[in-house]
């Protein structure tokens, strides 16, 4: 049951987005997230929406499986947007009844919030959908290298991420195993109030922690045996090199930014 949880989902593929360098994707996703908040009117908002939809289409990731993951989020977004309609009283009145005032300002804000967050989710999740966790970690490590000035070792962060990614499936399997074993001894994990359930977790969590420490100790030993001594003097097998398509992606995003700015200038801001 617990095995069905997938973290940092990645859909392998060969699309344009899959092939982009991880660093390019990291930078551009960050840029596009900012662009989303630059939109001041419906025209620029439409442009960024079209852009997001095209990205999803280009990635060739089945829309259905994407939407499935977002189901809960959509409910939350819808609720926050609805709240905006009732609380924001700026602009012209559209509807009034007793204490409820619905104004254009409220409706516009609701639409903007709704569309922006959806675009945001789609674009940022495309990053993990089209980039394998290892490549993502690699890209982050290389991008964050300049942080050395602030005594932050990007290598250490990346190594922690790598190890976490490596051990998450192993630990999930282990939890499954321990749960079955304790259930076989009559542990009741499914009934009772909050306190009883929290108490029932002790027989699962104690062995899990004890075993994790043992694993950590073994792993540290194994890493030292393999001559690990931090990032200094370390090379990487994978060479990250920007290709023509990466430059194309940068140009497209620059064009997008220009488009948004122009639309913002030519048309009146509504928000």
């Amino acid at each position: 049951m617990i095995k069905e949880i997938t973290i940092g989902q990645y859909f392998p593929g060969k699309s344009f987005l899959h092939k982009l360098d991880a660093r390019t994707k990291l930078i551009l996703v960050l840029a596009v997230l900012i662009f989303i908040f630059l939109c001041r009117n419906f025209y620029s908002l439409a442009l960024i929406t079209v852009f997001s939809v095209v990205c999803v289409a280009v990635s060739r990731i089945p829309l259905r499986s994407m939407l499935k993951g977002f189901r809960v989020l959509f409910v939350i977004i819808l609720l926050t947007s609805l709240l905006q309609i009732f609380y924001n009283n700026e602009g012209d009145a559209l509807f009034e009844w007793k204490k409820i005032h619905i104004t254009t300002g409220g409706v516009y804000t609701a639409i903007f919030i709704c569309v922006r967050i959806i675009c945001l989710i789609f674009v940022s999740s495309l990053l993990t959908y089209t980039t394998s966790p290892t490549l993502l970690t690699d890209g982050l490590e290389r991008l964050l290298k300049p942080l050395k000035v602030f005594h932050i070792e990007s290598h250490t962060l990346a190594m922690m991420m790598t190890i976490a990614l490596r051990f998450i499936p192993t630990l999930i399997e282990e939890v499954d195993h321990i749960m079955s074993a304790q259930k076989a001894r009559g542990a009741d994990l499914e009934t009772g109030g909050l306190l009883k359930r929290a108490k029932a977790m002790v027989p699962i969590l104690v062995p899990l922690f004890v075993n994790s420490f043992r694993r950590a100790y073994d792993l540290a030993y194994a890493m030292e045996c393999r001559c690990y001594r931090g990032g200094a003097g370390r090379t990487r097998m994978r060479v990250m090199k920007l290709a023509v398509r990466d430059y194309i992606a940068f140009v497209i995003c620059a064009a997008l930014l220009a488009g948004i700015i122009l639309l913002n200038i030519f048309f009146e801001a509504v928000i």
């Binding site: 195993h177 074993a181 304790q182 009559g186 062995p207």
Partner: peptide, 26 residues
Amino acid sequence: GLCFQYPEYQLFEDTVFADIAFGPKN
């Protein structure tokens, strides 16, 4: 009664007695 593989990795109580007593208690 089913005893899983590598059962020593499922011990959790403070004392040997308490761990053996977990099943009977349940």
